[in-house]
């Protein structure tokens, strides 16, 4: 069981298929794969995983502020195949510059990603290009447009002060 047949297979085929676009890939422990791709290859990678390894479930999208860049993790799940009871959690990371964060939508491949993409815009200001319904998801109405609360440069007190100023209280 503890052999990493499946994981290795996925890693190998990804390496073969994407080559230069695949910046980094590692098997952290059984059932956990972390990979980094160029943002241009994001959609292809996800379709590839979905079509070839039946990794068809997106658990969530989380963002990380990495200084100059914003890292966006797509946590995918699936690949319950013959002989295996359990699934693989595949965390696919892309980065996008903080000055002009942009990513293509993946709702065309996995429709369930809609809410998570809205959330990532709210929290980090990553513009999702081609999103079918780009409204605010969690932040209150009247929220100041340039405040993205999970970016590191926004401290809690700064956000509070800013909201008081513009009255972003959902009023």
């Amino acid at each position: 069981m503890a052999t990493l047949n499946r994981e290795n297979k996925i890693v190998d085929s990804l390496k073969e298929k994407f080559g230069q676009n695949l910046l980094e890939i590692k098997i952290q422990k059984p059932r956990r794969i972390f990979a980094t791709v160029l943002s241009s290859a994001l959609k292809d990678t996800i379709s590839f995983l979905k079509d070839n390894f039946s990794i068809n479930h997106i658990s969530t999208i989380s963002g990380v502020d990495m200084g100059k860049e914003i890292g966006v993790y797509y946590h995918l799940m699936g690949n319950k195949v013959e002989g295996y009871d359990n699934e693989i959690v595949f965390s696919l990371k892309v980065t996008t510059p903080k000055s002009d964060p942009k990513l293509p939508t993946i709702t065309t491949i996995i429709p369930g990603a809609e809410l998570y993409e809205r959330e990532i815009y709210d929290m980090f200001g990553v513009v999702i290009e081609g999103h079918p319904d780009p409204r605010t998801l969690v932040l209150p109405d009247g929220w100041p447009e340039d405040v993205f609360p999970l970016r590191k440069e926004w401290k809690v007190d700064d956000i509070k002060a800013k909201i008081e100023k513009v009255g972003g209280d959902g009023s």
Binding site: L139, P140, D141, I163, G168, D169, G170, S171
Partner: peptide
Amino acid sequence: VTRQIRDR
């Protein structure tokens, strides 16, 4: 009380 719900 969250900001979104305060007025409600």
